[in-house]
């Protein structure tokens, strides 16, 4: 066992990389749930985004195009969910599960010929001057552009919900869809847009795993990250900044866990590999005592005739 081989600066820098897919998916789902929709299909949209991004990136050679394709892929799949829950008024839990089961099959089918290929690498983007700050520079300012994008989106989402009129309307729809409808807001249209946004971000989060974090395509490679993202929304009490905090916490657990495995600590590998899931359960238990942050209409179907 050699713990001295673990470099704290590198550890913190890789923490951000590990947190980014979680952060993207969880921020997307936060918006969806604030609009009153529970989309349990995050895992399915992430894995679909992972393969869409990977395939397009390999074929075009452009990681940015790949990332955009992943967002489109995730959003396209979420459109199916939007149709089922908003138009066909299907049960949201069942529809979300269907989305995940379908997404896992779809991605396996699309990814058949992409096993074992290495994608073109994403260029790192050092922010001039800031990157040269000792300690903080390597941690915060020598990352790939997607990390910055995820952080910017987090702040934008926070500002959107807190300060804008559109954010207020979105929250109104999530808290009481009947009242929002009576005020003349298009509940179904707003919710559909929120679902699409969530799908696009989940897709990008998936592509971050297949293009940057791993980078490779294997079947079922998201391995429950979509589900952890769902738990993070509960952890963050449906508030973007707290959700981000949760994502960093989980990124940290993941990185520490992998580093301990590599360092050959006397804890069995399987126990270490279980830890993110066990800690998710622990977090859910602790955070579930207070459900006051949950949108009041979460998970309920809206039909104008009611």
């Amino acid at each position: 066992m050699d713990l001295s081989a673990i470099n704290p600066v590198l550890l913190l820098a890789s923490l951000l990389v590990a947190a980014t897919p979680l952060l993207l998916a969880a921020i997307g789902e936060t918006i969806v749930e604030r609009a009153g929709v529970l989309n349990l299909g995050v895992e399915g949209m992430m894995i679909t985004g992972a393969i869409c991004g990977f395939a397009i990136c390999v074929n075009t050679g452009s990681p940015v195009t790949g990332l955009v394709a992943a967002a489109i892929g995730g959003a396209a799949l979420s459109l199916v969910f939007a149709f089922l829950t908003q138009v066909a008024l299907a049960n949201q839990v069942a529809s979300g599960l269907a989305l995940t089961l379908f997404g896992l099959g779809l991605s396996a089918l699309l990814g058949q010929n992409y096993q074992g290929i290495k994608p073109p690498s994403f260029p790192r983007f050092d922010i001039p001057l800031l990157a040269d700050i000792p300690v903080l520079g390597p941690i915060l300012f020598r990352q790939d552009p997607v990390v910055y994008l995820a952080l910017a989106l987090t702040l934008a989402t926070w500002a959107f919900l807190k300060f804008t009129r559109a954010g207020l309307i979105l929250r109104a729809v999530g808290e009481n869809h009947d009242a929002a409808h009576a005020l003349g807001y298009k509940v179904i249209r707003i919710r559909t847009l929120a679902i699409l946004f969530g799908g696009a971000l989940a897709g990008m989060g998936g592509a971050y795993i297949s293009l940057i974090r791993v980078p490779q395509w294997t079947e079922g490679m998201t391995a429950g990250i979509g589900w952890i993202a769902l738990a993070l929304v509960v952890f963050g009490a449906w508030k973007p900044l707290r959700v981000a905090l949760g994502a960093f916490l989980f990124g940290g657990i993941e990185v520490v866990q992998l580093n301990l495995q590599a360092a050959g600590v006397a804890i069995p590998v399987e126990i270490l590999a279980m830890s993110p899931y066990l800690i998710t359960i622990l977090v859910l238990v602790i955070m579930s005592a207070d459900r006051s942050g949950a949108p009041a209409s979460l998970g309920r179907s809206f039909h104008a005739s009611h």
Partner: peptide
């Protein structure tokens, strides 16, 4: 994988 997708589709159509 096509069969897996086929099974997932079934649930979509049912819903």
């Amino acid at each position: 994988a096509a069969i897996q997708m086929f099974q997932g589709m079934l649930l979509f159509f049912l819903l």
